[in-house]
Amino acid sequence: MTSTITLAQHKKNALNIVFIGNSITQGVQLADAATEAPPATAVAYLQKQKNLDAVNFSNQGHSGYTTLDFLPGTDTFTKVEQAASNFTDKDALLIFSIKLGTNDSAIQGPHGAPVSPDNYQKNLKTIVDKLLADFPKAIVIFQHPVWYSPNTYNGGKYLQEGLSRLQSYIPMIDGLVKTYATINPQHVFVGDTKAFAYFEKNHLTDLIPENGKQGTFYLHPNKKGAEALGRFWGIAIDNVVRRYF
Rank of each mutant, 00 (worst) to 15 (best):
L132I: 08
Y153W: 15
W147Q: 06
S149V: 10
M172A: 06
K178M: 12
P145I: 02
P145G: 04
G155I: 08
A197Q: 12
P114N: 00
T182M: 07
P185Q: 13
T193E: 12
L159G: 01
Y153E: 11
G109S: 09
I107Q: 14
Y180G: 09
L159C: 09
L163C: 05
K137R: 13
P171Q: 01
P171C: 05
W147D: 11
A113Q: 03
I183Q: 13
H111N: 15
P110I: 02
G112H: 11
A181Q: 15
M172I: 08
V146I: 12
G191K: 09
K125E: 14
V146K: 02
I139H: 09
V146M: 00
P145T: 00
D134W: 03
N123Q: 04
G162T: 05
G162R: 08
F189S: 07
T179H: 11
V140C: 12
V128W: 10
Q160N: 03
F196E: 13
A133L: 13
L166W: 07
I170L: 01
Y148H: 14
D174V: 02
P145Q: 04
A113I: 01
V177M: 02
T179V: 14
T152Q: 06
I173K: 03
Q160C: 07
I127R: 01
G175M: 00
W147G: 03
D118V: 06
T193N: 10
P150Y: 03
K125T: 12
F189K: 04
T152S: 14
P185M: 08
L159Y: 05
Y120E: 05
N184D: 15
I127D: 09
Y120S: 06
